[in-house]
């Protein structure tokens, strides 16, 4: 049952992508068509690609992608065509331009800031002045106890046996 559900869930994107059946002269072109409509975002929708939307503009744009591919346009030319009309919004993989620099490198900046913060916190923790009196007190306590322990160890009851075996 679970296996069947998993198969059905995996089929969902395929079903969406097959809303309109366009004829293609070869499988390579069909594969490029499906890759493009997966990568292009529907301008009318907030977060759906062309493949997954039944909005009118999405179906018109799928038809345009099909037409451009049949005209022999490259993937890059199709993306350029869409970007010239609908802007960066339509590209799910935004291009590296000045306004998208933060989008691309923001996560890296966050990683560096988080890493540096982590290092600072750990270092500060290691040399925290609050811990110094604690260790001093601990030493004192341990010292006190070790004295007590050595006292018990040098207890004549435990060592008396070896003392007796010493030659006179």
């Amino acid at each position: 049952m679970r296996g069947l559900l998993l198969v059905l869930v995996c089929l969902v994107p395929m079903v969406n992508a097959a809303i309109d059946a366009y004829p293609f002269p070869n499988d390579e072109l069909r594969a490029r068509y499906h890759a493009l409509i997966d990568e292009l975002r529907c301008p009318q929708c907030l977060n759906t690609n062309l493949a997954g939307s039944d909005a009118m503009i999405a179906s018109d744009l799928r038809r345009e992608v099909h037409r451009l591919l049949l005209e022999g346009k490259s993937d890059q030319e199709v993306l350029d065509f869409m970007q010239a009309r609908y802007g960066d919004f339509i590209l799910y993989e935004p291009r590296l331009t000045l306004p998208t620099v933060f989008l691309w490198f923001g996560p890296l900046i966050f990683l560096v800031v988080a890493g540096l913060t982590g290092i600072v916190v750990v270092r500060r923790g290691a040399s925290d002045p609050v811990e110094k009196p604690d260790t001093a007190r601990l030493d004192e306590l341990l010292h006190g106890r070790s004295d007590a322990r050595s006292d018990t160890r040098s207890d004549p009851h435990t060592d008396s046996h070896s003392e007796r075996q010493e030659p006179p």
Partner: peptide, 13 residues
């Protein structure tokens, strides 16, 4: 009627 000019205009509705 085919929405081609609209696409060239960047119309989405």
């Amino acid at each position: 009627d085919a929405g081609r000019l609209a696409i060239d205009l960047g119309v989405y509705g």
